[in-house]
Design a protein around this nucleic acid. Structure first.
Lengths: 196, 196, 196, 196
DNA sequence: TATGAATGAGGGTTCATTCAT
DNA sequence: CATGAATGAACCCTCATTCAT
């Protein structure tokens, strides 16, 4: 290939990241290889290593970026909502819509590198998101809107349902549930209310 | 090395399956290799291929066995329960306890082989389990115990929560939710009831 | 598989040989494997080794049998022919018809085992057949029917043509030459005779 | 080991081809292995796959190159010969001398890959060479130098003799016939002419 | 005479990573 | 900043052969 127009480092980095997202999500971490990414990024194999220490680092960066992005959006969206029920609904819908839009994110991940792969970053993310949910629930209970339940457990369960959605994208992309229904179930439960 | 004491084919097959479960779950599909499994099964590499066509077939069999087992247990456990709320609770607890006990199951899976890896078997399993949930919910609504909700969506969401639990085992094995709390939330929702 | 009716050793040996011919000729020596042969012979793998020391020995026996058979038939056919030209024609046609009928023979052979594979047996066979040709030619010259040519060279060339035919069977089975035309060319040459 | 002195891609390709020819012809396709070739080419195993898709591709290229080379030489040599008898002689001698010089060519080939291995390329080559022979013979007949014979059959037979020579190289390298004698026999036949 | 589970060296191939240019 | 040829360990899998039964 001929010499490209010189590109800035920043631009190259971004190109690589985009390409890597495409390739990793298309083939999975294990089956994706550096040659594919290099080609997709229109850069040489060696070039990859100018910007990322190794394959793992590249993938890690990808995940971290996405997680940070989603965390930011969630924080933002929740900022001006006071009603706890509405906040729960918003939390669910924003997460679900995000993973649906960026489904590539999920497809990237494998169980390589003996678990350790990006696990810390994910743990931190999950913890922070659960915290958010806990705060909402706690506020709802204090406001008398929610019943007195185990706050932490409930947060885990709600977040679990969202993660279940993520898994569904991989296995059953054609039968995903709706965020609205999810909020509805989580808020109201299955059991019939007296008054309706 | 000399020949092992002759073992029956059946016994060898089982040894391999056990060893494979251990190795796959310990390292993940991609990082596990046939040599490891052979050593763990106390058999030669070639011996592995006497019982399984290839690595994929071996792993596939593993998953299928577990799924069939869980499906059987679920069917059995649900058989003599009439109360829909109780059935929901049972469904949740049996699934969650099963994956907790056999957490190896989850760790096995990767995204190799272009998604197709065992996906059909899983899809079928998921569909059948969701069907079970749907039946319970429908019965609950008819009995006037459950409110009129979207049956299919609700089933997806409940099953999603269980699957979220599965993912948690991988990432946050130290903060799993309790099956009882899960049933509680799913049945009663977050929002406070009028009468309490 | 259940126990077969006990078969005699002789019969088993023959079954194996037949099966081996089929398998070797269908796949070539290198790609054929003992399992295939065992299955085709309806015997166990171990059973093969009761009758033949190893794969090579089995194949070798195959070749030797065919070569001996062809040598016998040639000797027989040539026995009562006096006319040298007719003898040449007979030699060519018997060889060509034989390899055409038993084309499997050819397909068996590979270049495995560093050349040595069955080479001695073949050499011997070739030498004896060439000798036969030489005798015919020499007789023809003495009788004044054939011109004075280099007997050994001519025998080599004629036998070469036959061997070329063998190769053609592998590569161009649809454009084989006719034995009659071959004798014709060998006997009369390309160049026009004065008197015709 | 540290990196070799950087070599150009072209040069490496050639080194590999040379090494492969040596190794394949020394051991035969089936017994030759990529490690041998790598070592002989003074390159790493992986390096081989930079230039050839796989073992088969490597061997195929080898054969194709030789065949193309011989075809070119034949065409060239025949270009300025008008006398049909001389042309036949030239055709025979050029082919025979070529395979004698490059005897490695023959030794390479096996019956692997279910016959298909390079067979098309060979067929094409054989067809084109036979065509050449046919043209010479036809010209000879038209000029009244050759007797009226079956042109295609005769071409097949002559080419068959050459191919028989090729086989002889493998089995009886010590008793090859001479190109001159071959032309002589083919042109004049065995049967004595009236006038001599 | 017969079985077939078991062996294990060795084959072809891949790919993350390096480094001379 | 960028290249891409080169590396080589490691992978999955095959198969001739053995031997306890």
């Amino acid at each position: 290939m001929v010499h490209m127009n010189k590109r800035s480092g920043i631009e190259s980095r971004k190109r690589i990241l985009d390409a890597a997202m495409k390739v990793f999500s298309g083939h999975g971490y294990a089956k994706a290889n550096m040659r594919m990414i290099a080609k997709a990024a229109d850069i040489s194999i060696g070039g990859l290593y100018l910007y990322f220490r190794n394959k793992e680092d590249l993938c890690f960066t990808l995940i971290k970026n996405r997680l940070d992005d989603l965390a930011g959006r969630t924080r933002e969206a929740l900022g001006d909502i006071d009603d706890p029920a509405e906040a729960i609904g918003k939390f669910i819908s924003i997460h679900i819509k995000y993973v649906k839009k960026h489904r590539e994110l999920i497809l990237v991940q494998g169980r390589e590198h003996g678990f350790a792969f990006g696990i810390e970053i994910k743990k931190k993310f999950f913890r922070s998101q659960r915290k958010l949910l806990e705060d909402i629930i706690r506020k709802g209970i204090k406001a008398g809107v929610f019943r007195k339940c185990d706050v932490e457990e409930s947060a885990k369960i709600i977040f679990g349902a969202i993660r279940g959605f993520v898994l569904s994208i991989v296995v059953e992309p054609d039968s995903l549930f709706l965020p609205e229904e999810c909020s509805n179930l989580i808020l109201n439960g299955l059991v019939r209310r007296n008054n309706k």
